[in-house]
């Protein structure tokens, strides 16, 4: 019988130490409708209310035994703290993730890192949620948090067409912007660490080879990821979605404790390229497998990730909230039984 708590399992695993079995967790958003319904949590409000945010995150462990509690749930926290205006869709029926409706940054000079980061935008909501989770579940469950990588964050604060064009025509300007955003990201991670988070994911979705060429990733984005990962708290994870096989070695060189990839990554090829030392997390499809799949197919799909080369199964992206309860249960049952 296992004597390891989920927290010990996750943290030891991420440090490369021996564990009784791979943990079942994620470093990205995971909030699901069965939890929201059980605790009567309004999705739109959960992004702005630390008590609801903590309750929804804790519910994944309490209801399913998912071995983590991760906050926040959306991708706009840091952008909002830098001045972007959000739309929370509070009056819209159904589940919609917040969007940035107004971007205010054009150049590095426009990035005003708040003196009081702890109280900027919704950062205090996230830190308070972390404190609540720490106090309620801190001995049992690993508390995770994430921040967007600098290029992805740049796309949340600056108009995308301007960002893409500038990164080709005047990469030195984009570099200055990313440098400033990296400084901000490191500071926010420290705030989350001080609040009690246990592990930290840097999500650079904009670095995917679906969008950026490997050459641009290497020259423009990678140096900033190296800088952030060297300074951010540990254990840490670098996540990039989409096509990542052509940049996987560069991802490793960024220096994270673990690498996370999504379902488009060919795991056997990745494992071959990275060898057996690197911790790879992935990569079941959270929409196709967990949301739309049949319960009986979830276990084989998840176990297939391990066979393909992952050290632990985790979703390729945020869980889409409309996950059927039986699918979530099937995921946990199949992986816990080994």
């Amino acid at each position: 019988m296992s004597t390891m708590t989920p927290k010990q399992r996750v943290l030891k695993f991420l440090k490369g130490e021996e564990v009784d079995r791979p943990p079942i967790f994620s470093g990205m958003g995971n909030v699901v409708v069965p939890v929201l319904e059980k605790y009567e949590i309004n999705f739109a409000r959960a992004h702005r209310d630390p008590v609801l945010m903590a309750k929804a995150a804790a519910g994944m462990y309490r209801e399913f035994g998912f071995e983590c509690a991760v906050v926040p749930f959306d991708l706009g926290v840091e952008a909002e703290a830098l001045g972007s205006v959000m739309n929370y869709y509070e009056d819209v029926e159904g589940l919609l993730y917040p969007t940035v409706k107004e971007k205010v940054i054009k150049t590095a000079e426009d990035v005003h890192i708040p003196d009081d980061i702890k109280n900027a935008g919704r950062i205090p909501v996230v830190t308070e949620a972390i404190r609540i989770l720490r106090s309620e579940l801190g001995d049992e469950v690993a508390i995770g948090t994430y921040i967007l990588g600098p290029f992805t964050l740049a796309g949340q604060v600056k108009e995308l067409d301007e960002l893409f064009e500038e990164s080709f025509l005047a990469p030195e300007k984009t570099n200055m912007l990313l440098d400033r955003l990296s400084e901000f990201i490191i500071k926010v991670f420290k705030v989350y660490k001080d609040a009690g988070a246990d592990y930290f994911t840097l999500r650079e979705m904009g670095g995917t080879s679906d969008v950026m060429s490997p050459k641009s990733f290497k020259s423009l984005i990678k140096p900033h990821l190296i800088k952030i990962l060297a300074a951010m708290p540990r254990p840490n994870i670098l996540h990039i979605c989409g096509d990542t096989n052509s940049i996987i070695e560069d991802m490793k060189e960024c220096g994270a404790d673990a690498i996370s990839v999504d379902q488009k990554n060919c795991l056997p090829e990745t494992r071959k390229k990275l060898g057996h030392e690197t911790i790879i997390l992935g990569n079941f499809d959270p929409v196709k497998v967990l949301m739309q799949g049949k319960a009986e197919d979830v276990g084989p799909a998840a176990k297939g990730c391990i066979t393909a080369g992952a050290n632990a199964v985790w979703p390729g992206c945020d869980l889409w909230p409309e996950v059927p309860k039986k699918n979530m249960q099937a995921l946990m049952d199949s992986l816990k039984s080994g």
């Binding site: 819209v92 979605c241 949301m291």
Partner: peptide, 12 residues
């Protein structure tokens, strides 16, 4: 709505 282009947007 918003979210990561690969999953959240598709799910939404």
């Amino acid at each position: 709505g918003g979210g990561c282009i690969c999953c959240q947007v598709v799910g939404s």
